[in-house]
Amino acid sequence: MAELFSDEWLQEFVTNANAGAPESLKKAKTLDYWEIVDKMGQSFSAPMAMVLKADEAHGLMEPKYALLNFEQGKVTEAHLCSREEASAAPFILQTDVTGWKRCKEGSMDVTQAVMYRNFLLTKGDIDAFFRIIYFFVEWLRAGIQQTEMSFPSKAAA
């Protein structure tokens, strides 16, 4: 099982997020909603950096960075990167271990992680981001639900 923000994790995560919601989840929501999610996704083409905040309690002493290139709602390329490379991206989504962990365990929803700022857009136009927010929520949710992952922990560090 790959650890959050490892190379292997990133490739698996992106593949699963790109694949979209599994059928079981699709059925639970209206067709209109999924249509809008698709339309929102298609309107988004830009590089976005994802940052995993340093978290001493989880043994993560330094932040981690990844750069994802979105083309019409699909990530066409993703790699772990340096702080400098991440800073240059037009959109930066800052995340924390707690948010990923709780969303994976199912004790918190992705929408809640947005409202509680576990997933926070620290750079980029927030109006543009929120006009397609359902796409990002579903993209993240599909990746989280379908990717097995382990988390940094103090014991492992």
């Binding site: 929408t111 409202m115 929120f130 929520v137």
Partner: peptide, 13 residues
């Protein structure tokens, strides 16, 4: 889901 539209936006603002 739609709750995050207004309230997530407020949190980010």
């Amino acid at each position: 889901e739609t709750f995050v539209g207004s309230f997530g936006y407020l949190a980010y603002l």
